[in-house]
């Protein structure tokens, strides 16, 4: 089949093509291209500012239980009080009917929780969408039975962060989540086991940037810490170690090297590990 078709000829009968909303052959009537976009001029008048220029609503999103395809009954000032009351009743019924099942209701709750988590952790929008999708798959795989909704919301965010290489520690998520750490872990284990999440070990380098800004160390120290991580990976030091602990160890080592004031306790605290963990990793790292 030829890739480029002549605009003027019909592919069946070589007749004349006519372009409008759809391109069709004027001889045999074959529809060559469908284009729902109206490319004609805009006939509506906007000169008095009152008309809304929009033709469409917001794009579809997986981050809403109805994918953003909701209907709302609006309000108007110039209605009789009788009609206004009727609309208020309709609105109430509509709001009740909007969520049809218990699963739907749970999804609404979990999605707002995910949204809250994502905003307070300062994560990008794409993480939110993916976390919502993950939650939905967990729900359809019937993983939620007997486990907490809040835990699953937090675990979805945790899992998506991990797969998107912007890892957060369990502690960081549990701090802002409504779920306890145990709930989060139980939910994450279930997700990982049943859905086969594509997660490997966390790269300690993912933590460096955040810890560095929390510890307020200079850029040079941060860059050196990244080198330490690479070195540690080559020497196999990260195997079997807590990645966040190793990340903060590298920062600590880089800070010591640059004579930057940083105590083991401070460094250990941002990663949620004990100074002992940091110390043993540190000695392994600097030992040549």
């Amino acid at each position: 089949m030829s890739q480029v078709q002549s605009k003027a000829a019909c592919p069946e009968c070589s007749g004349r093509l006519e372009a409008g909303e759809e391109t069709f052959c004027s001889d045999c009537g074959l529809v060559v291209a469908e284009d729902y976009l109206d490319r004609g001029p805009e006939w509506r008048s906007f000169s008095d500012d009152s008309e809304n220029r929009e033709r469409t609503g917001a794009p579809l999103t997986r981050a809403r239980h109805d994918r953003g395809l909701s209907t709302e009954i609006g309000r108007s000032r110039d209605l009789s009080s009788k009609k206004r009351r009727r609309l208020a009743r309709m609105r109430r019924q509509h709001n009740r009917a909007r969520i049809s099942s218990k699963a739907d209701r749970n999804r609404v709750y979990a999605f707002t929780e995910i949204r809250r988590l994502v905003s307070s952790l300062g994560l990008p929008q794409s993480i939110r969408d993916q976390a919502c999708v993950l939650f939905e798959s967990a729900q359809s795989a019937d993983l939620l039975r007997g486990r907490s909704l809040e835990g699953f919301a937090a675990a979805s965010v945790y899992a998506v962060c991990r797969t998107a290489a912007v890892s957060r520690t369990v502690g960081e998520i549990a701090d802002v989540a409504r779920a306890s750490e145990a709930e989060l872990k139980a939910a994450y284990d279930a997700l990982n086991r049943e859905l086969g999440l594509p997660t490997g070990p966390i790269d300690p380098a993912e933590y460096i940037g955040r810890f560095a800004s929390q510890l307020d160390v200079p850029k040079t120290v941060e860059a050196r810490a990244r080198e330490f991580v690479t070195e540690g990976r080559e020497r196999g030091l990260i195997n079997g170690r807590n990645p966040s602990g190793f990340a903060t160890t590298c920062l600590y080592a880089a800070a010591i090297e640059a004579d930057h004031d940083l105590t083991q306790r401070e460094a250990a605290d941002v990663a949620g590990v004990t100074p002992v963990t940091l110390r043993t990793a540190y000695y392994d790292l600097i030992e040549e």
């Binding site: 300062g122 990008p124 912007v166 957060r168 940037g209 955040r210 560095a212 800004s213």
Partner: peptide, 9 residues
């Protein structure tokens, strides 16, 4: 600004 990796500057 807060970056995706959580660092803030």
């Amino acid at each position: 600004v807060r970056e995706a990796d959580g660092s803030e500057e």
